[in-house]
Design a binder for these strands. Structure first.
Length: 411
DNA sequence: TCTGGGGTCCTAGGACCC
DNA sequence: TCTGGGGTCCTAGGACCC
């Protein structure tokens, strides 16, 4: 029998920013999603100042100034790379591992091998090899391991083994239902009307009621809370869809501008597809007006391709088709994006019998990717895509993934 | 004035078939 | 006037996660 260990990186994005800036240590720091974006990560000190998650940063500007809060713009290539290093570090312990997100992973630990010392060793090694602090929670199911991790974050060791049945029971009595993994805002609202406030209250409801109110999710959550695994340890790790979306600083009404922007998204998305050796059979373009205003407008077009593709011009053509239906001012666009779905392996794609593909030159894309890899993004680009459609506030350097950004130190 | 950007899975209802 | 029943598949939208 195995236990389930969840490793959760503390304040992950904020901690990543601090790795290469010792002067950021023990200072309030937030990572925001753009110039006026929302706060998506906070250091311990920033949390203590009462800055909530997902706060619109412009609303907290004066607090940021008053308290000397360091604000960083997201630097995902850095976070991804640090995440990869953490995985490599954890792999040295040799337990089956399922990576759940950029800052969380589950490990299967055989019952007889679980000790406080093991957990301590894992934490220490990750800290030493990557500079990141972690919280560890152990229990019998993933959902309970999540509960344990929540508890761990309140303990100074940041470790919690929650396997004793009586203790689990006691814990669930006071564990807020909205903190359970899988219970979101909407479900919480529903549950409150039935006076379900703690995890235990949820467990006490009968299955038929739960199925009706929350669907299959509710049943699974309950089963996990009672110690029965409802999710396989290894879940699919293959991407099923891929998106590129952006929210703009100001609204866009000119179709020619949106044309360029979507073309850039397509270029970026197709590069991603080729990097992960995937082709898409379905393609979506969407444009949206601001979600904070009345009269929300949407424009969505989905195309099914005759044959899966990751050849940029295929999608640029579909974009022409979609956007030709619009004229300036039809919609004031605050957010736009594209999505690829029904991804298949690019080496074994199904050909279409009735629409034989015109011979595309995959080498062309290979060369393009190669040149851009070597000489930097957008060295070579399609004329229809804009070179840079937003002035990006600068992120921290790509310390670990870009030769030009490698840190120089004097000793 | 300014409010990420990715993902996954499930469900209800319509279309369609025999 | 009266017009079945059971099944599958597809899709949009909703809920959740980080």
């Amino acid at each position: 029998m195995n236990y389930c260990l969840l490793i959760d990186c503390d304040n992950f994005f904020a901690s990543c920013e601090a790795i290469f800036h010792p002067e950021y240590k023990n200072k309030p720091l937030v990572v925001a999603s753009g110039k006026n974006g929302i706060v998506i990560a906070r250091s311990k000190e920033a949390k203590a100042l009462g800055i909530p998650m997902a706060a619109a940063s412009f609303k907290y500007k004066s607090l940021f100034i008053k308290e000397d809060v360091i604000t960083c713009k997201t630097n995902f290539s850095l976070y991804r790379d640090i995440s990869l290093r953490i995985r490599e570090t954890v792999a040295t312990f040799g337990f089956p591992t399922f990576v759940y997100s950029v800052d969380e992973m589950f490990l299967q630990i055989p019952k007889e091998q679980l000790t406080e010392k093991l957990l301590n060793d894992i934490q220490k090694k990750i800290k030493r090899w990557t500079g990141i602090d972690t919280s560890l929670g152990v229990s019998t199911t993933k959902t309970l391991a999540k509960v344990a991790t929540k508890l761990a974050k309140k303990i100074h060791t940041r470790r919690k083994i929650l396997i004793d049945e009586t203790e689990i029971n006691q814990t669930l009595k006071t564990f807020p239902v909205e903190d359970i993994w899988g219970i979101g805002r909407n479900t919480h609202k529903k549950l409150i009307t039935y006076k379900v406030r703690s995890a235990k209250d949820l467990l006490n409801k009968n299955p038929e009621f739960l199925k009706k109110l929350l669907g299959i999710h509710g049943l699974r959550t309950c089963s996990e809370l009672s110690g029965k695994n409802a999710y396989p340890f290894f879940q699919t790790n293959v991407d099923k869809s891929l998106q590129v979306t952006k929210t703009f600083l100001t609204e866009i009404i000119k179709i020619s501008s949106i044309n360029e922007i979507i073309a850039s998204f397509i270029t970026e998305g197709c590069e991603k597809l080729r990097r992960i050796n995937r082709k898409a059979a379905e393609f979506t373009i969407f444009l949206q007006s601001s979600r904070f205003k009345n009269n929300r407008q949407y424009f969505t077009k989905t195309y099914t391709l005759d044959e899966p593709s990751n050849y940029t011009p295929d999608f640029l053509m579909l974009k022409e088709k979609a956007l030709s239906q619009l004229k300036d001012g039809d919609i004031s666009i605050k957010r736009a994006g594209i999505g690829f779905s029904f991804l298949t392996d690019s080496h074994s794609t199904q050909k279409n019998l009735f629409h034989p593909s015109n011979e595309k030159n995959p080498q062309l894309m290979e060369i393009l990717d190669h040149i851009n890899d070597k000489f930097g993004d957008k060295t070579l680009r399609f004329a229809s895509s804009s070179k840079s459609f937003v002035k990006r506030p600068s992120s921290s350097a790509k310390y670990t993934t870009c030769w030009d950004d490698i840190l120089e130190i004097q000793i």
